[in-house]
Nucleic acid binder design. Structure first.
Lengths: 192, 192
DNA sequence: GTCTATATGACGATAGAC
DNA sequence: GTCTATCGTCATATAGAC
């Protein structure tokens, strides 16, 4: 069969799974829910993925890699920690508005509950990249001398919390409306 | 039967459930796991709780109420936003060390996945109390004029993120070791 | 590759004896 | 109140025809 069609079907499965996982959660979604939503049969689905868990893992890894690519691009585009981290937060806010499901899945999924033995989100590629940027910012003197983990949470903890608020429907306005004030406040916490 | 014994059994169920829910998650824990861990039979367990969901709800509500009490006590003890919020973060850090399971359950559980229709954590009693304190702090002029939600996440987003790091085993040292620096950084973000 | 039909097993919850 | 035994349901995954 044409590879093109195969890919379309794979993506249909992943898309439907993403929708259902964020809507009702991994454990409240059955394989048959995904299968019918993606317009194919159970047998076919199991031809594309070994099992339900594999769908979740592929999904998570895709989103994670995509974010990592974006972070690398931001790193190339800007040359200092302020501009870089500012762009990251803006990117996260925008993505949450444009592609809410992805962000919700990335941030809200207790991935270790789905995949028995799984590393913490905090040692994932995107996280490490952000950490690297912050460490460089400390070396250059733009960010105060402080415990690196504390610097990380001070800079990104607020914005990330803001994303949770938005996903939970607490904020009336879209995230970008709060961006300038939120970023400014976060930066005040770490600037030299 | 003596009320005392009834209460002991009820607590045994809740304690075992808390342990298992945090260890492997709600959906990976069966009623029979809880029952055997709490040293009683299935039938007896169902005499104490209507169903599995009720256990999770009671647990969540207990922890939430307990935290709310503590926040109220802190509010009575201090008379300004700086001292109050400082005490809150310290309390959260201490509790995470002393009673990791409770905090993990409170912070990490996707409660809406367990209980179909459930309000967001962000409109829970403890959250609203914290919000009230921050709003008063803005009125008194200790905290800068800014969107209240942004003030909330700037002040507590970092510390809460720190708790996640600790629960996930990323931090080598216990949380109190990071407290002063973490609180100082958070406050810098909102102070007038 | 894709489908339908089904095996297998687990789990939540109840019945009914004591 | 407490137990053991069991029922009904449903979800994952596979078998086997096309």
């Amino acid at each position: 069969m044409r590879d093109e069609k195969k890919q379309r079907r794979q993506e249909a499965i992943l898309l439907e799974a993403l929708k259902l996982f964020t809507e009702r959660g991994y454990f409240n979604t059955s394989v048959s829910d995904i299968q019918s939503g993606a317009n194919l049969s159970v047998g076919t689905l199991y031809n594309y993925f070994k099992n339900k868990e594999a769908i979740a893992v592929t999904l998570f890894s895709n989103i994670e890699n995509c974010l990592y690519e974006n972070l690398c691009e931001i790193e190339r585009k800007y040359d200092n920690v302020y501009d870089r981290c500012r762009a990251i937060v803006l990117h996260l806010f925008d993505t949450t508005e444009r592609n809410s499901d992805s962000m919700q899945y990335l941030f809200y999924t207790k991935h270790r509950e789905v995949v028995p033995v799984e590393k913490s989100v905090f040692v994932s590629l995107p996280f490490l990249k952000m950490r690297e940027m912050v460490l460089n910012g400390q070396k250059s003197g733009d960010i105060r001398k402080m415990e690196p983990h504390v610097a990380m949470v001070t800079l990104f903890g607020g914005p990330v919390r803001m994303i949770y608020l938005r996903i939970d429907g607490v904020l009336e306005k879209p995230l970008p409306a709060y961006f300038e004030e939120c970023w400014d406040s976060a930066w005040r916490g770490v600037r030299a």
